[in-house]
Design a protein around this nucleic acid. Structure first.
Length: 283
DNA sequence: ATAGGCGCCTGCTGGC
DNA sequence: TGCCAGCAGGCGCCTA
């Protein structure tokens, strides 16, 4: 579910609800998430106060007052919300951190359990783990020449590059398709066949699409809600994702769906051209 | 280097 | 109506 706009929305909504609050209870379910929760972390967290909530790619980082940090990933169906403790706990709620006097709590709910929560002793350890994973630049900081070279140096298709968190952090299946449509580039076009102008167009398209999606508080198809528990609305503005057979909003041709980089991929065969010839550099 | 496949999980939809 | 294959906002591991 959650790509950069959804994660950004969660962070923005958690921040005012968490910063300054103290963790006074920790409850963790028995069933494992993607990464195992160490029982020792409970005592690390008790009594700590939240100093900041931030985002890196699709990761949520909660800073604590002893410099330690909790790093969350929402996987496909994760929800991280602050709610009043009286609200009934829905099924698949795996982690509950009680806050202050216990009137509110941070809840992690994740139906498919592809998400995770990991405690790190300090910021350096978190940064190290991001570096080891090769996590790439934030799309809003993406240098145009870095991006151009990245594309020029690969024979993977554009869709695969966009999904690769080492190339650019935070883009997932929805926003990859929407960005390629915005840039009028075919998802199967190879990176190395991408002209300078096309690369820059794609970079700007990513920024445009992600910014607009953040304004709409992300996309809610099924599970996603922000940090306050409210769904987003960008799904109403999808131009190709999830709309195979429907007319392209630019030219009216039916949107196509293919399998690319192992993922369902949506595009307009006219507006986004054909997969270019091996030596082609169209624009 | 990179494509492709699988596995991790649960739930929902559509076609028969 | 009921069953089951196929699909889903992610990602890491393996093989060829």
């Amino acid at each position: 579910m959650p790509e950069l706009p959804e994660v950004e929305t969660v962070v923005r909504e958690l921040r005012p609800r968490l910063v300054g609050r103290r963790i006074t209870s920790v409850r963790v379910g028995k069933r494992a998430l993607r990464r195992r929760w160490s029982p020792a972390w409970r005592r690390r967290l008790l009594g700590r106060r939240v100093t900041e909530v931030r985002r890196r790619g699709k990761w949520i980082v909660i800073d604590l007052d002893d410099q330690s940090e909790i790093v969350w990933h929402l996987g496909m169906t994760g929800q991280l919300t602050v709610v009043s403790a009286g609200q009934p706990r829905r099924p698949h709620t795996h982690i509950v951190l009680g806050l202050d006097e216990g009137e509110r709590e941070l809840r992690f709910r994740d139906v498919r359990r592809f998400g995770s929560a990991v405690w790190f002793p300090d910021r350096q350890a978190v940064e190290r783990s991001f570096t080891e994973a090769g996590l790439g630049p934030e799309p809003f900081d993406l240098d145009r020449n870095t991006w151009r070279r990245r594309l020029a140096g690969t024979r993977r298709c554009l869709k695969a590059v966009l999904l690769d968190q080492r190339a650019v952090a935070g883009v997932g299946n929805i926003y990859a398709d929407e960005s390629l449509f915005e840039a009028r580039l075919h998802p199967a076009q190879l990176g190395r066949q991408t002209s300078r102008r096309q690369a820059e167009r794609l970079r700007q398209a990513i920024v445009t699409v992600l910014s607009r999606a953040i304004e709409r508080r992300g996309s809610s198809i099924r599970d996603y809600v922000g940090g306050s528990g409210t769904p987003g609305s960008y799904q109403a503005e999808f131009r190709v994702y999830g709309r195979p057979g429907e007319p392209c909003p630019r030219c009216g041709r039916p949107i196509e769906r293919v399998r690319l980089a192992g993922r369902s991929t949506h595009f307009c065969p006219r507006c986004q051209g054909n997969a270019p010839p091996a030596n082609g550099q169209r624009d």
